[in-house]
Structures are given as C-alpha cells and as structure tokens.
C-alpha cells in the first residue's frame, strides 16, 4: 500500500464513518429517550436513498403508499379514541394530520414531475416522504408498549425492521440504485484527489451534528428530550409528555436516517436491504459509546468507517467479519469498565 492508496482509503473511511456517526447519534438519542434500540434506523437510510432515486427516475416511490397506509391506520385508531371520549372537535385535526397531509403530498407528486425538479427540491420531497414514517412507526408499533422491558422493545424493533425490509423489496424491487453525485468538483491535495461529494458528506455531517448540539442545548424541546433521557418519571412530573418525547426523538432519528441515505446514495449502490448493515455499523459505533455518550459514539463510528475501509483493502472478503467482530473487544472493554447496578 502506498501513501496514495492509504489516503484514498482514509477518505472512504472518513466519509462512511461520518454517515455512521450520524446514525450512531440518532441511535443513542432514541435509546436514551425511549429505551428503544432502533434497529429500523437502517431502513430509513435505504428508504431515503431509494426514494430519491425513484423521484429522479420519474417513478412514484413506494414510500408514498406506506405513508398513506400508516396515516390511515393512525387516523382510524386516534379517531376511534376521540369518538369514544366524545371529543368530536379533535376529528378534523386528526384527519388532516394523518390523511390530509400525506394525500396532499401524493397529489403534488403526481401534479409536478419530480424528475425535472432541481436537486434540493428533490431532497426536500424525499425527506417529506420518509421522515414522517418514523413518528408514525413510534405511534403504531412502540407507543402501545412504551412501558415494556428493553428486551421486549428490542424484539419489536427487530419485527419492525423485518417488516420494513420486506416492504422495501415490494416498493423498490431487488435492483440497487445509485443517484448521481451532487457535485462533480474535485480538489487535488498533494498526490491525492479529494472528491467534492466526500467533502459534502463530511461538511453536512458536521453541520448536522452542530445543529443537533444547538437543538439540545438551546431549545426548549431539545431540553425536554434531554430531561426525559435523564429521568423519565421526573420529566413526566414536570409536564413533559413521554409520548411527545418519543415522537420527537423518532422524528429526529428518521430525519437523520433519511438524510444519511440521501448523502450516501451517490457513493455506494443502495439495495432495499442495504440499510440494515449500514445501521448496524452505526450501532457498533454507538456501543463503543456505551449507548450513552454522544462524542464517544461519533468517534467510534468514524473508527468503524476507517476499519472497514482498510480491511476492504487487505481482506475484502472478511470486511464484515472484521467490522462486526470488533464489537466483542468493545463489549469486553465496556464490561470491565462498568459495574452494573440494578435499580431498586
């Protein structure tokens, strides 16, 4: 390996690592607030990438149907609850939010041809299609069992993951897609070539992390989420609704996932089931941070990206083996570090 290849691999590693870092942050956030280990995070990456690809190919992305279906089910459930409680005045809002908005979105997709739109608008449409799925998932799959054990919630997560992967196959087919690069610019740094897309991914990741920092430090909702993460009961006593915190953290995680998908789709070909492995690599990073520390999780994720890039050079067949075996020494290190005391 010469320096040029080393730099190239390093560039790959950092790029993927930046994506994993975003996912790791989302995973830590969701776990801290809701105790859900959000395995379906990866599906949001795949849905984001493939929805954008569908829009660019002039096809109606299948995620529209999912949005409409989930909206309808939620409207039915919430509507029935409202009717039983004789709170009829809530019905219009429930319908508007869960059925009206998705229908409007679907109609506008049919009205304009998204393939011809400029890229930022396509990305915006993608996010509008994919991100709402996350809070809807929380409402349908997690909220009814929000008080269950971490273990039960994990099994729910795996069930959701399996369902979404299956739906991904139905929506997007078995072929993979790759979207064109956002920019063709490249820089020459010494011997190496730095691709504009790489810079874009890293800059976008850093910007997103900074934005998250300000959200958590400076805004009321960010503080509410932090309070819930620290002490659920205490936060509830202070008037922070656990359901709201759950919906909010899932929305953030969905947004981070879908945006990561948009960022990564020009770099690698994404298939309907690619999200799982990408999400799990974020997980390995998150576990390095003990599912608790944001900076450690991000650093761990970058480490995973680098390890993956370099092992793909030396032992490409064993790339996944190496990355996922990394978790063993990490867990060993954590188990030596922590002394687990049960709550009385």
């Amino acid at each position: 390996m010469d320096l040029q290849i080393a730099l190239l691999l390093g560039q790959d590693g950092v790029t993927n690592g930046a994506i994993y870092a975003l996912l790791a942050l989302a995973l830590v956030l969701v776990f801290a607030v809701t105790r859900v280990i959000f395995i379906p995070q990866g599906e949001f990456v795949a849905f984001g990438a493939l929805t954008l690809a569908s829009l660019q190919a002039g096809k109606l992305p299948g995620t529209v149907w999912l949005l409409l279906a989930m909206g309808t089910v939620i409207a039915l459930i919430e509507g029935a609850t409202a009717v039983r409680a004789h709170r009829f005045r809530r019905l219009p809002l429930i319908l508007l939010l869960n059925c009206g908005a998705p229908l409007l979105l679907a109609a506008s997709l049919l009205a304009v041809s998204p393939a011809g739109l400029p890229l930022p608008l396509q990305v915006l449409l993608t996010l509008m299609l994919v991100v709402p799925l996350a809070p809807m998932l929380y409402r349908l799959a997690y909220q009814p069992v929000a008080e269950a054990s971490v273990l039960a919630l994990l099994i729910v997560s795996v069930a959701v993951h399996v369902t979404l992967t299956g739906l991904g196959l139905v929506f997007f087919g078995a072929e993979g897609s790759r979207t064109p690069a956002f920019t063709d610019v490249s820089f020459e740094v010494g011997d190496a070539v730095l691709h504009g897309q790489t810079v874009l991914v890293i800059v976008a990741s850093i910007l997103l992390i900074v934005a998250l920092y300000f959200f958590f430090e400076r805004t009321l909702y960010g503080k509410a989420l932090r309070a819930t993460a620290m002490n659920r009961t205490g936060a509830r006593l202070m008037g922070i609704s656990g359901d709201l915190a759950g919906l909010l953290s899932f929305t953030l995680a969905g947004a981070i996932g879908a945006f990561s998908g948009v960022l990564i789709s020009p770099i690698t070909t994404i298939y309907y089931d690619s999200g799982f492995l990408i999400g799990l690599k974020g997980f390995v990073g998150a576990i390095i941070g003990g599912l608790a520390s944001y900076p450690l999780a991000a650093a761990g994720a970058v480490l995973v990206g680098l390890l993956e890039a370099y092992s793909s050079f030396w032992a490409s067949a064993f790339k996944e083996v190496i990355v996922f075996t990394l978790i063993i020494p990490v867990l060993l290190w954590r188990s030596l570090k922590t002394r687990h005391v049960e709550e009385a």
Binding site: I37, L151, I287, F324, I327, L331, R334, S335, T338, H340
Partner: peptide, 17 residues
C-alpha cells in the same frame, strides 16, 4: 456482565459475522 440489551446486540453482530 453488562445490562440485558448488550447480549442480544452482541448476538446480532456475532450472527452476521
């Protein structure tokens, strides 16, 4: 020795690997 959810996460990674 870690809390309960690390075992299943470990087994996911180990299953893939």
């Amino acid at each position: 020795r870690l809390s309960g959810h690390f075992l299943p996460l470990g087994t996911i990674a180990w299953g893939i690997s």
